[in-house]
Amino acid sequence: MTNKENFLKGFFRENAVFTLLLGMCPALGVTSSAINGLGMGLATTFVLIMSNVFISIFSSFIPDKVKIPSFIVIIAAFVTMVDLIMAGYAPALHEQLGVFIPLIVVNCLVLGRAEAFASKNQIFPSIIDGVSMGLGFSMALTMLGAVRELLGAGKIFGITIFSENYGMLIFVLAPGAFIALGYLIAFINKLRKA
């Protein structure tokens, strides 16, 4: 595929959350606000790009049978890096995202791209793949976070749009995450068919 196609695919046609249904756990778990969704998305994008690069470079040196474990170790290393950097330089966000930061390592999106793309392609396309899928993922999480934050608390990115008393509290709670995502996917499906 051309570089442009490669870059654009992660946003809609192959969007991790809306189309491929990957990375559901963080999508539901940290999107109680737009900024949390964005933060998680960017952290995951960093891991995606770095692991894609390293796996693209070294994949040919790794025997087939240990490919998956090796990929997992590489991904886990970058996840720990993100964890440490955030703990030191973005402590508030780090606390909000909590256990979902180490869980990036089991985000099927990351291992999936490593296996399906990075191990079979050159560095530059792998970088674009990481950027595309990562930003698409970030976009999905931010959208879901914004919807939940707006409907549930009347705010977006912390800016109050309407009073919290008019919000539907359920949306910032567990059930609301499921319901909001369900309708969001249905809505996006509708848009894609149109």
């Binding site: 070294f58 994949s59 040919s60 040196f61 790794i62 025997p63 087939d64 049978k65 240990v66 474990p69 090796s70 170790v73 590489i74 886990a76 290393a77 191990s119 079979k120 392609n121």
Partner: peptide
């Protein structure tokens, strides 16, 4: 990517070990 390393036991253990060592 063209050539793949053979999946002999030694190769596997060695590679996984090196990867983990560098990562750590």
């Amino acid at each position: 990517m063209a050539d793949k390393k053979e999946s002999t036991f030694i190769n596997m253990v060695l590679v996984l070990f090196i990867v983990t060592l560098v990562a750590s």
